[in-house]
Design a protein around this nucleic acid. Structure first.
Lengths: 342, 342
DNA sequence: CACACTCCCTAAACCGTTTCATCCCAATAG
DNA sequence: CTATTGGGATGAAACGGTTTAGGGAGTGTG
């Protein structure tokens, strides 16, 4: 049923030129007259030919595939608005350059290092976007050793010499705490993300520092796995404390957990924001769909992904290493934060 | 810095055999003694060699990449729990076979047809998962013409001769309506998904039929773009009607819209489920995080993705075409549905 | 008219595998 | 002792492009 594959040779024959000429034409390289060029394109169109990317890659030209390995249990991933939004931002840039995304879920960093190496040596990808950096992440050394174009999504302190794209989480955390303190909150808690992640550690440190500077009466932090269930559990245990020990405001590390927190408060008969203020992170559409709407540290995740992709193209085309901060998440007050009603 | 690439030739030389022998060893094909085999693997390990997948593909062996093109605006995608969950299910199967997912966002079906064809002719992929079928979808003919292994996620009536994996949405819709009717609801509305989609049409028809059979006093349907905003808008206009014309129950085509509907009800001072019952679809974690929790047509989307991937492997390995229904979404009552308080 | 210089284009080498026809050789059969 | 067998290994031909050294045909100069 399949029409026998049409190759560059067929096009060349039909246009009455050599294979090399066809190649030159399709790569927009000089050394061909306009007339021949047109003839070649016409022949290709008639035959419905397009260059075989595999062969093209083998022959040593650029690879138009970008790798992305994500290290989260598959089941959790589906629920994280962050990643899908990030990926869609990446895609938006790839698409306009006719590139594709090679996506893979891995169990741990070691597995990812192996995968990236296999991809790179196998010329499956032209470069990779690395996410979820940990302290002393082995991928830094691996990428350098392989000489592989890479963009690291994470704070420069975690990503070593790699070109990085990052948000200033420390500043954002500080602003979040300052904002709540300015509203009059003195007992503030934070429900953080996965403890192993570098940016969780940075946020944790920043939170502590802010609490110290502002001399808060109480500051709690817990880490979770980012899931709604974990967020609910954490919120429940925080709110179960009796008033003097109970926080009047809670900051979450993503919005799924904030939504969960909101429903826990309702279930416990606490009014938001009167009895407890809630502040989400990442600000997906979700934050505007709850009642009350969720105040959030708002962040253009889609744009973040797009920036990462753009930066990767820069690295691939040989730009020197660099550090590319993207805008710091900005506080977007909505209905879930207010001064505490003592 | 990159150590000059090590190829199969180096390994062959080091093991004192021919390239062909190394190839046989690494593909676990017969015709080699145990001793030689071991020697080859040892040499490969010492040199840190892994087969170049591009070359392997070019030479005509199987391609271990699966394609998936999704046709939604990038910004919407990030918010749809469905897709990420589906993708993570696909990944879970691919991973255990060392396959990767080539993902791309497209603007329309025509673009997808072009993309799939380019992927296939370029031997970039070994097969594809096709989603979001429309009536008279051009991908059916394209896949046949190309002789490309494909699994179609959609009802057989939409996917023609292609091997399909599908949920019986019509039955599910009927059950949803029956359930609400059994609770005593006589005025039921449905906030549907994108009108162009085949399964939306099927659900719409099933809803109409169920309303007719049950002789409901009122049955409204609207279509949306699946976004929370659209869900909120639709809900608002439905609930703005004065009581005799106002539905007492609403079924949504995904859970984002149901969450949005919930907050609209709250904002309008209507109690859920007393004044209006809400029933979500797909049942991601979200449905358990709201207050009240959302009743939903529950559906193992992760497993759905996994089934699709498994079926694709079946097609690739030459199994004949087939129709693979997965379990029908099952009604999971929670806090958002109850008999109407007249 | 010989020479150099362009401009187009071709031919062949190459990329790193797989595949398959073939060869070698030891063991078994006749 | 020769013929047959068959497992183990080889070498060369694909696979479908890119790349580059160089050839031939025109043109402009001395």
């Amino acid at each position: 049923m399949t029409t026998s594959r049409v190759t560059i040779k067929d096009v060349a024959a039909r246009a009455g030129v050599s294979k090399g000429a066809v190649s030159l034409a399709f790569n927009h390289k000089p050394g061909l007259s306009e007339a021949t060029r047109d003839r070649i394109f016409a022949a290709a169109r008639e035959l419905g030919w397009a260059p075989n990317l595999t062969a093209r890659t083998l022959a040593g030209s650029r690879v138009d595939v970008v790798g992305l390995a994500i290290c989260r249990p598959a089941r959790l991933l589906g629920l994280e608005p962050f990643y899908m939004e990030f990926v869609s931002g990446v895609e938006s840039v790839l698409t306009e350059r006719s590139c594709s995304l090679l996506l893979r879920l891995v169990r741990n960093v070691e597995e990812e290092v192996g995968l990236q190496e296999a991809w790179w040596r196998g010329r499956q990808i032209g470069g990779s976007i690395l996410v979820d950096f940990q302290l002393g992440d082995p991928r830094v050394a691996a990428a350098e050793r392989l000489g592989m174009p890479v963009v690291a999504v994470g704070h420069p302190s975690l990503t070593g010499s790699l070109t990085s794209v990052w948000t200033d989480d420390a500043t954002a955390v500080t602003q979040a705490v300052r904002y709540l303190a300015a509203l009059g909150h003195r007992r503030i808690a934070r429900v953080g993300g996965a403890a192993a992640l570098g940016h969780t550690a940075m946020r944790t440190a920043a939170f502590d520092e802010a609490a110290r500077v502002l001399e808060l009466a109480g500051a709690w932090q817990v880490t979770t796995d980012y899931s709604g269930e974990a967020g609910a559990r954490a919120t429940r245990s925080l709110l179960m404390a009796t008033p003097p020990d109970r926080p009047t405001a809670i900051v979450y590390d993503n919005d799924i957990m904030a939504v969960a927190g909101l429903s826990v408060a309702a279930e416990m008969g606490l009014r938001v924001p009167d009895d407890v203020s809630l502040l989400a992170w990442d600000d997906s559409q979700l934050c505007r769909l709850t009642h009350p709407t969720l105040s959030a540290m708002s962040h253009d995740v889609h744009g973040f992904g797009a920036d990462a992709a753009r930066t990767l193209f820069g690295v691939i085309t040989g730009e020197g290493p660099g550090s590319h901060p993207v805008p710091t998440p900005v506080l977007t007050p909505r209905g879930s934060t207010a001064p505490p009603r003592v």
